[in-house]
Amino acid sequence: MQAGEREVVFRKASPWEKRLLRKTLADSFGEEALNVLRGGEIYAVEAYWVELHLLGAEVEKLTGIIGRLGRHPYSAGLFLGWVRRGSFTPSLPLIQLIVGIAERGVVYVSEKAGMLFLYGRDILCSSVLRVKGGKPRRRQLVIVANKRGEALGLGVFEKKGSVCVENKLDLGWYLRRAG
């Protein structure tokens, strides 16, 4: 989830990157999800891969001030996710903002399944309590949430035997990788 060890380049996101971001969010979670992008400017931090960030006006102004140092920020504002091999993957902070407003693509799971998911496990079909907006498409990105509606992570909807959601990213990352 980091921009890597290479020196970073901070720039405005390209039109293609913005389109990819918006398309991914709208396709997976509905048009309402795009509301989280309102009132901000999208920037990219480029190292080994590209990360997208949403900057409010004050934060954007600050990046301009930092420009006087000739340094590029390592990150700024809301970390939206990253672009790799032509696809966009939403970040944990982004899905936590989207989960409440998504029209589809939220899979609510039992408490036990939720805890196992935090350890990197997939979600079994028998643990799914309900799905917002109807059954997702095959390979659709979905937010895995608990009964309270709290986002636990991101998965890919894929029915394989007893598994319904493959784990792509979960909050346990903060323990496993963050330090």
Partner: peptide, 19 residues
């Protein structure tokens, strides 16, 4: 700085630039 970023993300901080 990696731990710092993780804290900002986990705590929902959006008004910060990391240098």
């Amino acid at each position: 700085v990696k731990a710092l970023r993780a804290s900002l993300n986990r705590m929902g901080v959006t008004n910060t630039v990391v240098l």
